[in-house]
């Protein structure tokens, strides 16, 4: 039971990332993004002191806030429609994501032993899982908002992995700047697209 509870944030974060990959509904995606970033906190807390473990989730929340405010500005925030049927594209993306995670899960022990022996398996599973889902997101869509989510997911996976390898204040500061700039760039693209659509 304890083991399951410890793994729960991993599954929730991956589920949120999968939801972002599958479903294209802005409000839902923002909530999923918040959940995804929040779930990083317990994982980080295992290896970092509280103050440092808070940086990445907090940055994630700020990033989501920037995106939320932008979407609000262009009228993109709408009520969530929970009654929907899945399209073939969504099914495909969902299956692709699950397939990737399944493969990752299968080969994780060997991978861990060969490349990252010092990283806990849950930690590794979540970080690589986020990287893979982020990459799939990047490769399957060209809409700026989802590409921003894809890049943020990918980066959060990398940051999570790297925090287990070594820690540097300079690097952390730089990565925070990257995340925030990425959100601003995403917002910039959303506004530009909205402007050109209305023009």
């Amino acid at each position: 039971m304890t083991e399951f509870l410890q793994s729960l944030p991993v599954y929730i974060a991956l589920l949120a990332a999968l939801l972002n990959l599958v479903r294209r509904q802005w409000t839902l995606n923002l909530i999923a993004l918040v959940v995804q970033f929040a779930c990083l906190f317990p994982m980080l807390l295992k290896i970092l002191p509280l103050q440092l473990a808070l940086i990445q989730p907090f940055t994630g929340l700020m990033v989501t806030l920037i995106l939320y405010l932008t979407l609000l500005g262009v009228g993109g925030i709408k009520a969530i429609n929970l009654l929907f049927s899945l399209t073939s594209g969504e099914i495909f993306r969902g299956l692709a994501g699950i397939f990737l995670l399944a493969i990752l899960g299968t080969f994780l022990p060997q991978f861990q032993q060969a490349v990252f022996p010092l990283v806990p398996s849950n930690h590794l599973f979540l970080s690589i899982g986020l990287v893979l889902i982020g990459l799939t997101q990047l490769g399957t869509i060209s809409e700026p908002f989802y590409l921003a989510i894809g890049m943020l997911t990918f980066l959060s996976g990398i940051e999570l992995l790297y925090s287990a390898l070594e820690y540097s204040f300079l690097l952390e500061a730089l990565l925070v700047a990257v995340n925030l700039l990425l959100a601003i760039v995403g917002a910039f693209f959303i506004v530009k697209n909205a402007e050109s659509e209305s023009a």
Binding site: L138, F189, K192
Partner: peptide
């Protein structure tokens, strides 16, 4: 509008 080249560029640099 945001074009695909700049987005692709960003993605590759991020990877």
């Amino acid at each position: 509008p945001a074009r695909s080249g700049v987005i692709r560029f960003l993605s590759m640099q991020t990877l």
